[in-house]
């Protein structure tokens, strides 16, 4: 039996929802889950004793973590073949924001008042992602077999919300920008290279779920649940459903554990 821990933020919810169908298709993989609200997860770190300790600043925080994780406030990382870390989100949107008042010199012309070189955009991405990787190293160390996967890309359905949700605008901007595919490919490569150089493995969001650069197909966001099992609002574009969770776990099993499905997922 191969043992896996899925550790992360509320995005663990989609994977946990897929636990049962995954067990049927990959019976040789045993998965544990440990999830905390995003801010506690992202500010957590691995202790010298080998536990992941989310950042809790109050009794209330501790109670939330315990409630979601069968009474546990920390997670023992020992004994796992892989630890899938879900929910970190270095912001691609902060790279694409470089194009809010500038056109890419090497790219398309959209009438922006200035030009910026691809070299500068990549330098910015490097700077931001290097900082991200340094923080990951500080929080996680390299004693455990971590596989990092980004928080799910936003749902393409976010475009429908933009009128009532201004924060969606930067995402809609890059959805519609002709140079986004090339920039995202570069960005993802810098992200992966940085993490691998620091001694971590990387799992990309499965292609089947991807609608475009840094976008998830709308259907994977429909019917999503919180990590505690409660229903999300209709307009959530970040959290994904059990179908998405299954695709993620399936990719982990096949790509990182070299385990083929025992039965057809259908």
């Amino acid at each position: 039996m191969t043992k896996v821990l899925v550790l992360g933020s509320s995005h663990v919810g989609a994977l946990r929802e897929a636990a049962e169908p995954f067990r049927r298709v990959f019976p040789r993989v045993e998965i544990d889950y440990f999830a905390t609200p995003g801010p506690m997860f992202r500010a957590g770190r691995v202790t010298d004793a080998g536990f992941f300790a989310p950042r809790r600043t109050s009794e209330k925080d501790a109670a939330i973590v315990a409630k979601v994780n069968d009474g546990k406030e920390t997670c023992d990382l020992g004994g796992y073949d892989q630890i899938l870390c879900v929910g970190h989100r270095p912001l691609f949107v902060s790279t694409t924001a470089l194009l809010s008042a500038h056109d890419l010199l090497e790219g398309s012309r959209t009438g922006k008042p200035h030009l910026v070189s691809r070299s500068f955009v990549l330098a910015v991405a490097h700077e931001q992602l290097d900082q991200f990787v340094s923080e990951i190293q500080w929080r996680y160390g390299t004693k455990h077999p971590f596989v990092f996967t980004l928080a799910p890309y936003p749902s393409e359905g976010i475009a429908a919300r933009v009128a009532s949700y201004p924060d969606a605008q930067p995402i809609v901007d890059y959805m519609t920008h002709a140079d986004t595919p090339a920039i995202f490919a570069d960005w993802l490569s810098i992200y992966e290279t940085g993490l691998r150089a620091a001694g971590y493995d990387v799992l990309h969001q499965p292609e089947i779920t991807v609608a475009g650069p840094c976008l998830t197909k709308k259907r994977y966001a429909e019917g999503a649940l919180h990590a505690d099992g409660s229903a999300l609002g209709w307009a959530d574009h970040r959290h994904m459903n059990a179908e998405f969770g299954f695709e993620m776990l399936s990719a982990l099993a096949q790509e990182k554990l070299n385990i083929a499905p025992a039965v057809s997922a259908a």
Binding site: S94, H102, V116
Partner: peptide, 16 residues
């Protein structure tokens, strides 16, 4: 007249 795009560190902006 040619501001750096987005939010980037001064050091990087100045290199360019």
């Amino acid at each position: 007249a040619e501001p750096a795009p987005g939010t980037v560190s001064d050091a990087l902006a100045q290199q360019y």
